[in-house]
């Protein structure tokens, strides 16, 4: 296998895994629910996206023929992640979950 290509695939996989990890770190570290929501919805979608692009490159070059079907996974995630984030936000607001004091502005009354 071409070393440059292999390096690129390795880089994509590493970046993907790192962002997945950072998303989870955010979920664990941030102090209130609304802030925690930011970690997974972004970092994880890019994490999976990058990993999948690496996998797509690998299968396209190692096996005969174009292998694009993995692309459906990030496509689906990018469409659904905002929807689930908003549903969770709504239910959190409806349950009147607390947020840290220095948050400016306030959520709407349900």
């Amino acid at each position: 296998m071409n070393p440059w290509l292999e390096g690129l695939i390795c880089l994509l996989l590493l970046v993907g895994s790192l962002f997945t990890l950072i998303g989870s770190i955010g979920l664990l570290r941030l102090p209130d629910f609304f802030m925690r929501l930011h970690g997974p919805t972004k970092a994880t979608t890019l994490g999976v996206g990058s990993t999948v692009i690496g996998s797509m490159l690998y299968f396209t070059t190692q096996h005969e023929g174009l292998s694009l079907h993995e692309f459906l996974i990030p496509l689906f995630l990018f469409i659904t992640a905002p929807v689930s984030a908003q549903m969770l936000c709504k239910s959190a607001m409806q349950q009147r979950l607390g947020f840290i004091e220095r948050t400016r502005g306030k959520p709407w009354k349900p």
Partner: peptide, 19 residues
Amino acid sequence: PHQPDRILALDTININAIA
């Protein structure tokens, strides 16, 4: 500590599982 936190964690586990 709340239910939405747990659901968010489950959702994140799903995405991690895909990766």
